[in-house]
């Protein structure tokens, strides 16, 4: 397995392509970073602690859950389990992107995956579908997200209460809007219809009946299963394999 090395100029161009692709999403990440910082301090965490959480866990939804659970004494095991469960969707995501990141080499892949988020993952796969995903492009996606998330957490923690109620400014919908835009990049016409409908329906039902965030896993698995079982799925070639064969 050979890793395709780009010349330095190509690497820089790829990195900045990634930065440009992720820029619109930073606008949405920042308010939530401010909010998680402010909430963390309200719950009794020090600004250093909540910022360290953003630097080491770096996963928005699970951090809001953790902050909500943060009491004295700190429920160490409960927090670890809750955060693990909220982030279980990453297992599916890293499986889906495995064919691409393994070309980075094992050590770089394992380092790069530390920065995997819904946003960087979706944009990275979109890039792979459009041609070739380089490590430089992937880092161009991850670095601004990581910087924005941790800096905005720190600011929110120190300044506090900057964003009282995200719903008031429509920020509750910003996340939904981003996910819908990202989903649009994976629309494959007719063969997406059934998986998407099943995924949405399963997620809504699971959200109704099950606690926590199992709805994401159940919806995703249901949609993916339908994608695998629907007529013609077995013969459906992957464009990524064709790309790999060429390189």
């Amino acid at each position: 397995m050979t890793m395709r090395e780009l010349p330095p100029a190509g690497r820089r161009a790829d990195f900045f392509d990634g930065v440009i692709a992720v820029l619109p999403l930073l606008v949405a990440a920042a308010p939530f970073g401010l909010l998680v910082g402010a909430l963390g301090v309200q719950k009794g965490m020090s600004p250093a602690e909540i910022t360290l959480m953003s630097l080491t866990t770096f996963a928005g939804a699970s951090q809001f859950v953790a902050v909500e659970m943060w009491t004295q004494p700190v429920p160490v095991l409960g927090l670890a389990i809750a955060v693990f469960v909220v982030n279980l969707r990453h297992v599916l995501m890293s499986a889906a992107i495995a064919p691409q990141v393994r070309r980075f080499g094992l050590l770089r892949a394992l380092t790069g995956l530390f920065f995997l988020t819904d946003e960087s993952w979706a944009l990275a796969l979109r890039r792979a579908n459009a041609g070739h995903l380089s490590l430089a492009y992937y880092l161009g996606l991850c670095a601004p997200l990581y910087g924005t998330w941790s800096v905005s957490t720190a600011i929110g923690a120190v300044v506090g209460g900057v964003v009282d109620d995200p719903a008031r400014f429509g920020f509750d919908f910003v996340f939904v809007a981003i996910m819908l835009c990202l989903a649009g990049g994976f629309w494959q016409g007719k063969r997406s219809v059934l998986p998407w409908l099943v995924s949405g329906a399963a997620a809504i039902l699971a959200h109704e009946w099950l606690p926590g965030v199992w709805y994401v896993i159940i919806g995703a698995l249901a949609g993916s299963l339908v994608g695998a079982l629907q007529p013609g799925a077995a013969r459906q070639g992957r464009p990524l394999d064709a790309q790999e064969a060429l390189s």
């Binding site: 969707r89 599916l92 995501m93 499986a95 889906a96 819904d118 993952w121 979706a122 796969l125 996340f175 939904v176 996910m179 819908l180 990202l182 989903a183 994976f186 629309w187 494959q188 063969r191 997406s192 998986p195 998407w196 099943v198 995924s199 949405g200 329906a201 399963a202 997620a203 809504i204 959200h207 109704e208 709805y215 994401v216 896993i217 159940i218 919806g219 995703a220 698995l221 249901a222 949609g223 993916s224 339908v226 994608g227 695998a228």
Partner: peptide
């Protein structure tokens, strides 16, 4: 089918 399914499941509820 997974990427679209994950993103739709995240926001559907």
């Amino acid at each position: 089918a997974l990427p679209g399914a994950v993103l739709i499941a995240l926001v559907a509820p």
